[in-house]
């Protein structure tokens, strides 16, 4: 039981995909303009990542490995992710058109969110069990959502700060993300 908790803790804090592995920076900068879009994106990514890592595990474990075609991992994982993203997009479009509009291009772009593919590939390489793979995916997504929400709140505060013109917008965003990453380094070596 404790190892499962550890997987979640590690992926959320110690090996946070955004702040220590620098994966998924594109939506991190792109949809952190407001808390609502950050939460929406985080939840969508959580949904996609958890489902995709489960499906990837199934495909990898019962299809690719038995037929000895593991070199097809990347391409087949991308396919799975694309399907799940499409699926998510349809649901969001139906359930919350405004969120769909706000997330805009970033929603289909979850497909190319390297964190999603990275999670699936890393999980396959680390020979996780099914539950571990799902928790790994979920933990990574929870970590992504956490920092995305924290970052969106920070950016909202920075909107009112007297930032020099040259640093306004994405520049100060990246600097802030850098300092956040520095703070998350405190978790390194957490055992």
């Amino acid at each position: 039981m404790s190892e499962y908790a550890l997987i979640i803790l590690t992926t959320v804090l110690v090996n946070n995909f955004v702040l220590t592995q620098f994966l998924g920076l594109c939506p991190f900068m792109g949809v952190s303009r407001s808390l609502e879009s950050a939460l929406g994106m985080g939840l969508a990514t959580t949904f996609v990542l958890t489902l995709a890592s489960a499906l990837s595990f199934v495909i990898d474990h019962w299809l690719l490995v038995p037929f000895n075609v593991t070199y097809l991992r990347t391409i087949s994982f991308i396919l799975i992710i694309a399907i799940v993203v499409q699926y998510t997009e349809i649901v969001i479009r139906k359930r919350s058109p405004l969120l769909h509009r706000v997330l805009g291009l970033y929603l289909p772009l979850i497909t190319t969110n390297c964190a999603v593919l990275g999670v699936a590939l890393l999980s396959a390489r680390q020979h996780h069990s099914f539950l571990e793979a799902v928790l790994f995916g979920f933990g990574a997504a929870a970590g992504f959502t956490l920092v995305l929400v924290l970052f969106s709140m920070l950016r909202a505060r920075l909107n009112h700060a007297n930032v020099p013109i040259a640093f306004k917008g994405n520049a100060i965003g990246l600097i802030t993300a850098g300092i956040m990453s520095l703070a998350f380094m405190g978790f390194s070596g957490l055992t």
């Binding site: 699926y87 349809i90 649901v91 139906k94 359930r95 919350s96 058109p97 405004l98 769909h100 509009r101």
Partner: peptide
């Protein structure tokens, strides 16, 4: 997945008969 999708989009569509109208 199909069942879930159809359920989600059906329940959703009751609230948002025309997604454009809300926008």
């Amino acid at each position: 997945m199909g069942a879930l999708l159809s359920y989600l989009s059906r329940t959703g569509s009751e609230k948002h008969a025309d997604p454009d109208a809300e926008l």
